[in-house]
Write a protein that binds this DNA or RNA. Structure first.
Length: 887
RNA sequence: GGGCGCGUAGCUCAGCGGAAGAGCACUCGCCUUACAAGCGAGGGGUCGCUGGUUCGAACCCAGCCGUGCCCACCA
């Protein structure tokens, strides 16, 4: 056996040789292609549930803008997927595109400068008129003709356009995700507007309806006047906006026996709602108003008589302590209308403009109101305030304030409250069950559980799932029309489940002909579509084959992992739990891993509106996927992390280092350090074997005789145990830290110490080369989940197949007689460090031979000097190492 | 207004009851036969503030301050 360097052979069969000059260039294309060709990440459905690790991946928003935040969190998931795959679990890791819903509509509207007009008939050439032929889409057509009026499209043409654009977006995005190296099975990709998703969503809806968990009702709901759709609680956000208190003077009826005041002053920030005023409300204990309860006030300008009433929600500290109740200014108005049985006086239409209304008003008031019809809220406010001032009914000047106002999170104007017919899923009455589910779920990190609990505890209404939009899953419902052509909402017509998916706009109701649509005595289809969360809350069911592929369903559900960001706990996580409880009575997954946000280097949240978004392709190309993944892996679960190209540089350096040290180790004559197989660390007694791994070759290291070599392997064994435990707990950051720290010590100290011996001959050389090969094998596997490209690159130099299907290393090596002592490894590092310091302090270059080197007597590990003396002297280029008590 | 997270070297962060750590940046030295896209050495911190518990606190408790996120009832 000789330690001479091996000549690099030409490509030997399926394995590539160890290259003379290893490089990261081109490895991504090469291995991505190989993974695809070999089906490396293909899901094998032959496994049973306990052998499967299933992941309910967040559907990628194809219509949104991509930024490195996506790369960040998806990398975390991919690390878990790769880890469990190497542990022997069959990983169910499909990916979906969340393409339905408002974001897509908005993107299509802006991109093509079009609007949907459901009243238009379908025209087959409508898209061609926009310059669209086949799959060829013009570049952002809308931008060029922004000054023109948008092109109006029929509902069907608009949906076609949405489908075309999302299909193209999805192709672009898939390229990026593949480049990042996500180990998903791309053959199982689904979309939330696809026929499977529509069928699953409609089936879940019908079952919910049958179970009484889904209902529809005519109710006041938050309404976006621009998108003209209802908006659920989860999609609303508060924004601080400028407003102003206006102090209005109401009249009082004249039957006050005490001859008290004849007017009453009321503060409001929404004076334009004065014509919709139906009452004044003060707190029952408010001494200022107690004597007025039961009396009647008269509204200024409009002369409408309104009762003065008491309700505990009135806040004596706000304004003058008495509030104007309108139809509807805010959610309190809704409560007051209901609790105090007040009349409804609607003045706002669905487009946010004043509508003709039959008001209880004076003649002059009615005449004034007529001039407001068709005005927007802002215009009407201006006119009403001006008139109030003219007539002396405004006290002083409006007092500017900033206050929180509810907005649709994607909207630009404040939400109004409009009464309309909507579909709901029951959540309020299941609050306790939902809270119990949150306690049962495992959260990573744990503190995120609180977000969920607070949200569920704070629910104020059932989940509103209908949207008055177009690109979504239609409600599978028709209504019979009575003899006047009015829909009978109390007698909905439902399809059979076997007919799903259906579109009530194009499919006739069962028992009717298409010609009966819209006719008295005929039918009409429900025009609404489901909110995007109503479909994406079913991702486990859609991806897992619920009622579609029961065999698959049994193998993957309930899923192991739900990874997602913390901003959608109240939406995606909450709604998925709600659906699973309703459909199966169980949790949809075992663990929720919540990732943080990416901030810019100034620690500001990266978002489109801030304009600080970094798109991912550029860093992927500049630093490489492994390097970007390395940066992502440095962000702890749930922690917001700064975008940091420095870390990507470090990651790239690590990848390069792996290439170089591998070239060094594999450059020796081949040594098989493992007897009986190529899977060191497997099947070591006392170490739990990965589930699903059967027949993994056992092995023990042979020929490793030197104490230092054994010590290094013993330390490596500890690292394996540590990294494994960390990854099992989804703490990929700690796992990487431990592995990386060992790796650098391995390179800088161990390799330097044994290099000379390895180049030599005899048992000492064989021991070093065996240990080096063995350690490299293990280190590559430990790095593989984070750095999939470079590790598979090195793997391909000397091993068959992909490292990503190789078993995860398990347990301590050479636990058999003569096991190494990790303390010797630490001592060796400390000793070589002390020698280097001594030579540096003496101004002697490291490689300069010296007769002896004196190191401090308190150097840690001095007791192990004898065990590593020969290697130390060789590495230190010195004849002797002595302990110097002077330090 | 409420909840939660975070404040440790210039920067990004680990450590979470027993002598202040890593990487980057910075300074100096080395073209050492895996790697100069490298290697070695070094300087640099009253661990946000104030109290408390303890033999001992970056770490536990209380209260502040700063910062970020989530939530909240628009008069």
């Amino acid at each position: 056996m000789t330690g001479s360097r091996r000549a690099v052979p030409e490509e030997p069969g399926s394995r590539r040789a160890v290259p003379e000059k290893p490089s990261l260039d081109g490895i991504e294309e090469r291995h991505a292609r190989r993974w695809e060709a070999d089906g490396t990440y293909r899901f094998d459905r032959g496994r049973t549930r306990d052998e499967v690790y299933s992941i309910d991946t967040p559907p990628l928003t194809a219509s949104g803008s991509l930024h490195v935040g996506h790369v960040y969190s998806y990398t975390h998931t991919d690390i878990a997927a790769r880890f469990w795959r190497m542990r022997g679990r069959e990983v169910f890791y499909p990916v979906g595109w969340d393409d339905n819903g408002l974001p897509t509509e908005r993107r299509v509207q802006n991109y093509f400068h079009v609007r949907c007009d459901p009243s238009l008939p379908y025209h087959p050439d409508a898209l061609a008129a926009l310059g669209i032929t086949g799959d060829e889409l013009p570049e952002a057509a809308g931008r060029k003709r922004r000054e023109e009026a948008p092109t109006r499209l029929s509902r069907r043409s608009f949906i076609e356009l949405c489908a075309l654009l999302t299909a193209r977006d999805e192709r672009v995005f898939e390229t990026l995700w593949r480049r990042l190296g996500l180990s998903v099975d791309w053959s199982m990709t689904y979309t939330t507007i696809g026929s499977t998703a529509r069928r699953v969503a409609q089936r879940a809806f019908l079952r919910g309806l049958a179970a009484g968990e889904v209902y529809h009702a005519l109710a006041p709901t938050a309404w976006d006047v621009d998108f003209q759709t209802a908006v659920a609680q989860a999609e609303q956000e508060d924004r601080e906006v400028a407003g102003a208190y206006h102090r209005l003077v109401f009249g009082l009826d004249n039957d006050d026996p005490g001859g008290g005041a004849h007017t009453i002053e009321v503060d409001t920030t929404r004076p334009e709602l004065l014509p919709a005023c139906v009452a004044l409300v003060a707190h029952p204990d408010d001494a200022r108003y107690r004597s007025l309860f039961g009396r009647t006030a008269v509204s200024p300008l409009f002369g409408a008589p309104v009762p003065i009433l008491a309700h505990h929600l009135a806040d004596p500290g706000k304004g003058t302590g008495i509030a104007m109740v309108c139809t509807y200014g805010d959610v309190n108005d809704v409560t007051w209308q209901r609790d105090l049985r007040l009349p409804i006086r609607s003045i706002l239409g669905r487009d946010g403009r004043f509508i003709a209304a039959d008001l209880t008003s004076s003649t002059e008031g009615s005449a004034f109101y007529a001039t407001l019809v068709g005005r927007s809220v802002t215009q009407a406010r201006r006119e009403i305030v001006a008139r109030l001032a003219e007539t002396g009914r405004l006290v002083g000047e409006p007092r500017p304030i900033t206050h929180p106002v509810k907005f649709f999170e994607k909207g630009d104007r404040p939400l109004e409250i409009v009464t309309s017919r909507q579909w709901f899923i029951r959540t309020l009455e299941h609050r306790d069950t939902l809270l119990a589910a949150g306690r049962e779920l495992r959260w990573q990190p744990e503190f995120m559980r609180r977000r969920y609990e607070d949200w569920v505890s704070g629910l104020t209404s059932d989940w509103l799932i209908s949207r008055q939009r177009y690109f979504g899953v239609p409600f599978p419902v028709w209504y019979p029309l009575d003899e006047h052509g009015e829909p009978r909402h109390d007698a909905p017509i439902l399809p059979d489940e076997s007919a799903l998916p259906i579109d009530p706009q194009s499919d006739p109701a069962p028992g009717y002909r298409e010609a009966d649509r819209g006719r008295p005595g005929g039918f009409m289809g429900d025009t609404d579509v489901m909110d995007t969360w109503a479909t994406s809350s079913l991702t486990p069911q859609i991806a897992g084959g619920w009622c579609e592929d029961e065999d698959l369903w049994r193998r993957v559900y309930p899923m192991d992992l739900r990874p997602q960001a913390h901003d959608i706990i109240r939406t995606w996580l909450f709604t998925t739990v709600t659906r699973a409880l309703q459909l199966d009575g169980s949790l949809p997954w075992h663990t929720a891993a919540i990732s943080g946000f990416i901030t810019d280097p100034d620690r500001k949240k990266m978002s489109k509106s801030t304009g600080n978004v970094v798109t991912p392709m550029q860093p992927l190309e500049e630093y490489g996927s492994d390097a970007v993944r390395y940066w992502a892996a440095g962000g702890r679960p749930g922690a917001d992390t700064a975008y940091d190209t420095n870390q990507m540089r470090v990651g790239r350096r690590l990848a390069t280092k792996i290439l170089n040290v591998s070239r060094f180790v594999l450059g020796f004559e081949p040594v098989d350090p493992v007897s009986g197989g190529s899977a060191p660390f497997d099947s070591v007694p006392g170490v739990s074997e990965a589930p699903g791994v059967s027949g993994a070759p056992g092995g023990s290291v042979s020929g490793v005789s030197e104490a230092l070599d054994r010590a290094m392997l013993a330390q490596l064994g500890l690292v394996v145990a540590d990294a494994t435990a960390a990854l099992e707990a989804l703490d990929y950051t700690r796992a990487l830290e431990r592995v990386e720290a060992f790796f650098w010590t391995f390179c800088d100290d161990y390799v330097e110490l044994v290099k000379g011996r390895a180049y030599g001959a005899g048992p000492g050389s064989r021991s070093a080369r065996s240990a080096l090969t063995y350690a490299l094998d293990v280190l590559l596997r430990l790095f593989a989940p984070v750095l999939p490209y470079v590790t598979d690159e090195v793997w391909s130099w000397w091993r068959d197949g992909s490292i990503h299907r190789a078993p995860w290393p398990g347990g301590a090596p050479i636990s058999q007689p003569g096991a190494g002592d990790p303390a010797v490894f630490a001592a060796a590092s400390a000793l070589i460090g002390a020698v280097r310091r001594a030579k540096a302090a003496a101004g002697v270059p490291m490689r300069t031979e010296t007769p002896s080197v004196a190191i401090p007597a308190d150097t840690p590990g001095l007791a192990h000097l004898d065990a590593v003396r020969e290697d130390l002297l060789a590495a230190a280029h010195t004849g002797a190492v002595t302990a110097d008590s002077d330090g």
